[in-house]
């Protein structure tokens, strides 16, 4: 009975959104993480090795495709350089402050996943970077395919990612917009439905131009998450219960199984 009261008390304390971790917690997490990274990476290499043998035939086609992508990339790079230059000179003309110029100057930190939580309702990931490497809570985490999640807890040399799969109505959502319609489109990615495997995007205005198939990006409007990270594509749009707003189902862009390397997006230090 006493233990039951204790259990309720501990849960009550932990539920009240206490941010930050205590020293023993950090120590326990870091030592465990230290051991876990010896196992996760070799296992990943082994799995990757067998997969590569299986994929040997597809390799040639993939190579061809990659070559095409590189060609397209170099072409775009030329365009990008020119655009960046005009952008810079325009910024000079308009007397941008130093902070305004740097607002999109993101840094990407390369991190290794070292463990996956064995709890179906709390599928957090652990990565091998922590506060020592400049990781802070609420930083966005991406792969080459799209956004994966948000840093939820940080200790000295490891930190925990809360994947987008764990978004629920209790936590604040992510403000998002549609690619190419950034000015007119707005909604909040609020929760993930495990049964349909779709993200729910709510609070979309009734006259919003968003349509099926649009790519959904983070809008960066709430100034917490960076701008322009790919979240997914719109699968369907419905009117919400009262008909004032619309709700969209979004298919995730990133693949969440067998994650190995992720990038943590570090926003430039805010100059205020």
């Amino acid at each position: 009975m006493i233990s039951f009261i204790l259990f309720i008390a501990v849960i009550g304390v932990s539920i009240s959104n206490r941010s930050g971790l205590t020293a023993p917690e950090k120590f326990l997490r870091d030592t465990t993480g230290f051991v876990q990274q010896w196992f996760y990476k070799p296992a990943g290499y082994m799995a990757g090795f067998f997969q590569d043998i299986g994929n040997l035939r597809a390799m040639h086609e993939e190579n061809e495709q990659l070559r095409m992508t590189v060609a397209a990339y170099t072409r775009d790079k030329v365009k990008f350089n020119a655009m960046e230059q005009t952008n810079q000179s325009l910024q000079e003309l308009l007397h941008f402050t130093e902070a305004q110029k740097k607002i999109n100057d993101y840094k990407f930190l390369f991190a290794q996943v070292i463990a996956v939580s064995p709890d179906p309702y709390n599928q957090t990931l652990t990565i091998n970077l922590g506060s020592k490497n400049g990781i802070k809570e609420k930083m966005a985490v991406i792969t080459d395919e799209g956004m994966v999640g948000i840093i939820s807890k940080v200790s000295e040399v490891t930190s925990t990612i809360m994947p987008l799969l764990e978004l629920n109505d209790q936590a604040p959502g992510i403000s998002a917009t549609a690619l190419g319609k950034q000015k007119q489109s707005f909604g909040i990615v609020s929760s993930y439905n495990k049964e349909t495997q779709m993200l729910q995007m709510t609070k979309i205005a009734a006259d919003d131009p968003m349509t099926k198939g649009d790519t959904i990006l983070t809008s960066g409007l709430n100034n917490v998450y960076p701008e322009g990270l790919v979240i997914g594509t719109v699968e369907s749009i419905q009117d919400s219960d009262f008909g004032l707003t619309k709700t969209a189902s979004i298919k995730l862009a990133a693949d969440f199984d067998h994650l190995n390397e992720v990038l943590v997006v570090q926003k430039p230090e805010a100059i205020q």
Binding site: V10, V13, S14, R29, G33, A115, N122, T126
Partner: peptide, 12 residues
């Protein structure tokens, strides 16, 4: 240990 290392919604 599981609760602390994979700290998500609840502790304990």
């Amino acid at each position: 240990l599981q609760d602390v290392v994979f700290r998500g919604h609840l502790l304990g």
